[in-house]
């Protein structure tokens, strides 16, 4: 589904990603872990298409298409979803109205009719229940006045509405208490299917107790320096990142 080869990216002429290689197949859950400043958020930003980042070399293939050649909105329409670490508040723009616009733009992209008001409402009801998001919040301005937990649940609600092929959850666990974490993880798990894939970017192992990854990768200094299964996450939780840093620095 997603194939990243030798990806280099920089911001303000400072190289952050220094050659990332990653293969993700449908049905898989990948976790990307790593210490602060290792490039985790840069990777998600580059994949989502943030303009500030410049890709200096490498390729990203998304279901046979050149991802890096697409605008952020086309990436979304093709089925990429980024759950933001810091969801943005947009006063005056209603959550459901903008989602309806987004869904219809996606449908138009695939030459489909716009969603009917009835179907859309049914969808809002079903998907907001998935993350226990109050339907009142669904119709309010995007994230305005939402608590930290509500913002993260709203991200997963949007993900459920847009039905992406590949979801990237950028530090979705940050700022969540244990109950909110469980709700968010539950939502993600229910959306899992053999046809989609999930990338969980996190600093801590905690989230991975709930969203169990098939593969765990450690990002350090702009490269994936170690890959393994879920046991690697447990090892990191126990021993921290220093041993990996040492291994890399010695090599």
């Amino acid at each position: 589904m997603l194939s990243i080869k030798n990806l280099h990216a920089s911001i303000d002429d400072k190289e952050i990603l220094k050659g990332i290689d990653l293969e993700i197949k449908a049905g898989e859950v990948h976790a990307i872990m790593g210490p602060n400043g290792s490039g985790k958020s840069t990777l998600s930003s580059v994949l989502a298409g943030r303009e500030e980042y410049e890709v200096t070399s490498g390729t990203v293939d998304f279901d046979g298409k050149d991802l890096l050649d697409m605008s952020p909105e086309d990436r979304a329409k093709e089925g990429l979803f980024l759950a933001f670490q810091y969801p943005v508040e947009i006063p005056g723009v209603s959550n459901v109205n903008f989602l309806k616009t987004a869904i219809n733009e996606k449908r138009a992209h695939f030459n489909q009719e716009p969603v009917s008001a009835k179907d859309f409402l049914a969808m809002v009801k079903e998907k907001s229940a998935l993350v226990e998001l109050d339907s009142k919040l669904a119709s309010r301005s995007v994230n305005e006045g939402f608590s930290g937990g509500e913002k993260k649940r709203n991200e997963i609600f949007q993900m459920a509405m847009l039905e992406p092929k590949l979801s990237i959850l950028d530090e979705t666990d940050s700022g969540l208490d244990i109950d909110a974490l469980r709700i968010v993880a539950n939502g993600v798990n229910k959306l899992k299917s053999p046809n989609n894939a999930t990338v969980v970017i996190t600093h801590y192992q905690r989230l991975l107790d709930y969203i169990v990854p098939d593969y765990v990768h450690v990002l350090y200094n702009g490269k994936i320096v170690k890959s393994g299964t879920k046991e690697l996450a447990l090892e990191l939780e126990e021993k921290g990142y220093d041993w990996i840093k040492q291994e890399v620095d010695l090599a």
Binding site: G49, P72, E73, E89, I90, F98, A102, E105
Partner: peptide
């Protein structure tokens, strides 16, 4: 905010 909306598929 513009990027946020773009990332959901809006031009």
């Amino acid at each position: 905010a513009i990027f946020y909306l773009q990332s959901r598929g809006i031009s």
